[in-house]
Computed example of a mutant assay.
Amino acid sequence: MALPKFTRSAPIGVFDSGLGGLSVLQHIRQTLPNEALIYVADSGFAPYGDKTSAEILERSIAATDFLLNKKIKALVVACNTATAAAITHLRLHYPDLIIVGIEPGLKPASRLSKTKKIGVLATLSTIQSEKYQRLSAQLSAETSVEFIPQACVGLVDQIEKAEANADQTRLLLKKYLNPLLDANVDILVLGCTHYPFVADLIPELTSAHTPDSEPIKLIDTGKAVASQIQRMLVERDLTTSTSNGDIPRIDAYTNGNPEKLKHACTHWINIPEEKLSVFSFST
């Protein structure tokens, strides 16, 4: 696809397998309040975590092309699984486009851990990816930190159903946390952009294991992604530098349930309804 000429007033495009990327969108909105944003929730094909690499790549290309047709100036792959499976391909095929992915925060976690044992909550696809395997092995060799991955099968589905606080969600999360707590981890990496939406449950579910020690620290890389996209826009002189004080609108697209996406935008990350437009798409 021929890329459009990038302009300062063009929007930033963000896509995820579903609603999880809203946790990243929130950080981008806070870091770059003058920028127009377009969000794509590929909920009709969620979750990505149980898909093959080829299927995830196909969906990532479809979402990217959809956003390029909206004349975006930068792309954020707000999905750990899609980043692992597709970002190398996307950067090769769209070399002129700013593309920022999201990866589990293994590096910051390795610097903070005192026990040298770090739990990584992620999808099975992310854990099995070459990108994750290579990075975790490299950091373990350099720092003597042990990364203990935990595939959280079914957790994304619960969040997509807007049941983050449901009993089933708590049971699933407790099931996945217990082996990590038994291994004496002191850091938990949230290796999926959906997981920040259940982060409030973690202190409650881990407190019994750590009554006399510091609470387990959580690593969420959404803020770092927002800072990176800001740096890259500044380098290319593509930031929206003027504002009349009015917060730009956010256009959100889904091939799932539009009302569910609207509810998540307005209730999970507090986007005012008057600043939000939600559309269906069939890509």
Rank of each mutant, 00 (worst) to 15 (best):
G191D: 04
H27D: 13
I247C: 12
I98W: 11
T283L: 14
Q168N: 12
K174M: 09
D157Q: 13
G245E: 08
K107P: 05
L233T: 02
D16K: 05
N270M: 11
G44V: 00
I28A: 07
E273Y: 02
L139C: 02
D200F: 11
S129A: 15
Y48K: 07
A226Y: 07
S136E: 03
T254G: 01
L97I: 15
A74Y: 06
Q26A: 15
Y253T: 02
V76Q: 07
L90G: 12
E204I: 11
W268C: 05
S280F: 00
P95C: 15
Q230F: 11
L205A: 06
I99S: 14
R249M: 12
I250E: 04
N69Y: 02
A208W: 03
T83A: 03
D246F: 09
V40I: 13
N257K: 07
T31S: 13
Q228R: 10
I271K: 08
T266M: 13
A74T: 06
Y48F: 15
K107Y: 08
A41L: 06
I72Y: 06
A199V: 06
I99R: 10
L124H: 10
V189H: 04
E160Q: 08
R91D: 13
K260C: 09
E214P: 01
C152T: 14
L190E: 02
L276E: 05
F279C: 05
D167W: 08
E204M: 10
L3G: 03
D237P: 00
G191M: 01
I127L: 13
A46Q: 01
S140Y: 00
G13D: 04
E214I: 07
E273K: 10
V153D: 10
F45Y: 13
I269R: 03
Q168R: 11
L25G: 00
H89V: 13
K5L: 10
L233G: 01
T240C: 15
K114I: 10
S207G: 02
F6H: 03
I56P: 11
L121S: 03
S17K: 07
I202W: 08
T169C: 14
T88H: 14
I99H: 11
N165F: 11
E142Y: 06
T206E: 06
I28L: 15
A226P: 09
S144Q: 14
Q230H: 13
K5F: 08
L106H: 04
A78C: 01
D182T: 06
T283G: 09
P211N: 03
L173P: 07
D65G: 00
I118N: 05
L171W: 09
N69T: 05
A122Q: 02
P258S: 04
G256A: 03
H27S: 15
K107C: 07
N270K: 12
A122K: 02
P211H: 04
K51S: 13
